[in-house]
Design a binder for these strands. Sequence first.
DNA 1: GATAGATAGTACCGATCGGTCTTATCTCTC
DNA 2: GAGAGATAAGACCGATCGGTACTATCTATC
Lengths: 193, 193
Amino acid sequence: MPVKAGERLDPEATRARILKAASEVFMQRGIHATGINEVAEAAGASKLTIYKNFGSKDGLVEAVLTDRTQRVRAWHEQAVEQAATGRERILAIFDLVASWYAEAGFRGCAMMNAATEDRGHDGAPRRLAQDHLAFYRGLFQRLLTEAGVRDPETTARQLVIVLEGATIISAVDRDPGLGAEARVIVETLLDAA
Amino acid sequence: MPVKAGERLDPEATRARILKAASEVFMQRGIHATGINEVAEAAGASKLTIYKNFGSKDGLVEAVLTDRTQRVRAWHEQAVEQAATGRERILAIFDLVASWYAEAGFRGCAMMNAATEDRGHDGAPRRLAQDHLAFYRGLFQRLLTEAGVRDPETTARQLVIVLEGATIISAVDRDPGLGAEARVIVETLLDAA
DNA sequence: GATAGATAGTACCGATCGGTCTTATCTCTC
DNA sequence: GAGAGATAAGACCGATCGGTACTATCTATC
């Protein structure tokens, strides 16, 4: 049948529903391992609607990753704003990711995972992953400058290394404790900076 | 034709040749994206020989990763033995990985990449990746104990985070400078430990 | 209420994948 | 030199994939 009986006809909501379902199934099973039919079933949408909205699987992947990085950035900006000092603001980022590690079904960073799956290509996944890393570098550098650190650029790069290292190990080992461990490293690096 | 004319008939060498070719093509293009036919062509072997030796693609993947983790461990043990003090030995590990980051076509850690591609399954890739992380933890803990660090277990976990973070960022950004950056972090952590 | 757009469901297509099988030809061992 | 094992080359199979086409039916708009 067409349009589930009694439901509103809302293209925006349909697109958002597909994005959410695709994001979840891509994260849990991997992008390459997930077929469009699975996305359609998970989203309660038809393949026609998916291709009307995103053109191709690559287009869907790019849209999912773009949506994801934007949401993650917004969450970080929000968490930072709710903390007081420069140092507290930096630690707030690691408290936020620690809460992600503790979520059921945590599978790492969507952008790094996609870039890893798509290695060998220089397409959207790798570009978006690089942009995502650059966002972290910029955010840390801004906060470190506010905190009066001597070399914000260098320390920012160090914090990104710690963040991504904790993320991938947490995903592989299914260990939510990496959030606390990363925080300890960050405090040491901030003390030394 | 059969057996390339004039070549020795050496099953061990054939198996090793397939492992090497599969390892390279898997790393460059991704495991999921690489078909058995591509492995066969890269190895100069037939599909029959591959399936005789490894049973299935999963078997080949497991053999490649097992071979890889063993080689990496041996290289690390060797690099460690050639350095003098406990601290120098730890830094020797990061000098070794820094040289990997600088290699053309560096694509990250084979075990982490495979586990990421295969997320959603609890098969050999994830198990071997966990074993690989455990090896690093054990090696660092041993060296930190030799160096007289107060809490070798905690510091070892910190060093693994730095190592894996630098590795994935180097792979995504194609930036060999991550090796030097990781070394600086490690020195800071060792000074504080 | 007529028209247009959005959508579900499903069949379908060509390509590719993992895996099997056959054939022929090489090397090695006795 | 005869038999056994190893190997290359490639045809083949069923399943699945990304993507398209078609039909039917819903909602939104005028």
